[in-house]
């Protein structure tokens, strides 16, 4: 049983690290700000959840797990809030995507 939990937590940690690195690669590779926003949110959702879940499995049923869950919930709420705040500030400042699809639903924006 312990072995299964260990292997599962290794899988979580490695895949979480993978998403963190992918998010960082996207932050560098993507052409403009609006696309980079999505790359950063890969780190903030997938990476954070998987790494914290992996650490939870390592800790077992202790107070450490409670702390990890509280950190996870906090990041779960504040992550999207700060992403929204950055996107909103950029929209207000007049920044617009470079390559925007022309369609009827987007005409009201510009």
């Amino acid at each position: 049983m312990q072995d299964i939990l260990n292997i599962l937590s290794y899988v979580f940690l490695v895949s979480g690290t993978f998403f963190v690195v992918v998010g960082a690669i996207g932050t560098v590779r993507f052409p403009d700000f609006w696309a980079r926003l999505h790359a950063a949110s890969v780190t903030e959702s997938g990476g954070v959840i998987l790494i914290l879940a992996g650490l939870c499995l390592q800790a077992g049923w202790t107070l450490v797990t409670v702390k990890l869950i509280i950190i996870g919930l906090f990041l779960f709420i504040t992550g999207p809030t700060s992403t929204h705040a950055i996107a909103n500030a950029a929209l207000v400042s007049g920044l617009r995507p470079d390559t925007i699809v022309k369609n009827p639903t987007s005409d009201k924006v510009n």
């Binding site: 998403f19 690669i25 790359a39």
Partner: peptide, 18 residues
């Protein structure tokens, strides 16, 4: 999104909609 990031030519098709 991971597939988009790691693809050779990034197939980005941005849009703002309501």
């Amino acid at each position: 999104v991971t597939r988009v990031i790691l693809a050779g030519t990034m197939p980005i098709k941005q849009n703002l909609f309501r």
